[in-house]
Amino acid sequence: MQLRKADRRGLADEAADRIREAIFAGVFPPGSPVREVELAASLDVSRGSVREGLAVLEREGLVRSAWHRGTRVIDLTAQDAEEVYSVRAALEGLASRSAVGRVDLDALGELVDAMSRRLAASAPSDELLALDVEFHDTVYQAAGNRRLLEAWHAVRSQVYLFQLTRIRLGYHGYRAVVVDEHRELVRLLEVGDPEAVTTFAEEHVRSALRVLVGQLGQPDHSGHSGQPGRLG
């Protein structure tokens, strides 16, 4: 097992970052165990730091701990997707509605333009996903609701992992819609109709869920992304 060494010995956040990267890269597939002793040796940090780092990831919903079973990466089932994306749809609707008249439309437009350029250059889809997540981060920040932002952060890593899986199982489908859907969100935010932007933001999430549930019903849905990623 090869993980990048932690930059600063004994820091739980560093351990969490490295383990998160490994989960997103598919080093630890969905449902697989993550063992403190092996992680501590690989990261060259204490078991206490690893334990605290895993606690961070458990709060993010990426891993689960159970008595006598240890800690495991979450499974990626259709039911899990339904739960995560139903929460996300509600959050996205509220965030988009709250961001009307407050969000930096130029910043959002620049992110969509960057997506378009990456798409034209046939860049890896994980680069598009990073811009996708940054777009939504910007909307949540602009909403001006601290608890809403905290709720987004509580599911953000799970959403990222599911989106990586969606891309792996439907590479071209994601690339076909990512620019147009986000450009339409910018347009609706600029128009300033709270009801319209709420409806579209929620449907943006639900359409992704429908695709993902269909994909997870197919064979080979282990969740390996093959693409590294990191949420800072």
Rank of each mutant, 00 (worst) to 15 (best):
S65C: 02
P124I: 13
A120Y: 11
R97E: 08
A120R: 14
R51P: 07
R35L: 12
S225Q: 02
R230L: 10
P124S: 13
V37N: 12
D126W: 15
V100P: 00
R118S: 13
S207L: 01
G170V: 05
D137K: 02
G192V: 01
A78I: 05
D80R: 13
R20E: 14
R166W: 05
E60M: 07
P30S: 14
V37M: 08
R20G: 13
D17V: 14
T71E: 11
V37C: 10
A114N: 05
D180K: 11
L62I: 05
H221S: 14
S32L: 03
A95W: 00
V211P: 01
L111H: 09
F162Y: 02
R230F: 07
V87G: 01
L164S: 03
S222W: 07
A208C: 06
D132W: 03
L91K: 00
R72N: 11
D17L: 15
Q141N: 12
A208V: 02
T138A: 06
F135L: 04
V197N: 03
S49L: 06
A121M: 11
V34T: 03
L54S: 04
A176H: 15
G214L: 10
Q158S: 14
L105T: 05
L76M: 15
E58V: 00
Q215H: 13
E82C: 00
R8Y: 12
T199M: 00
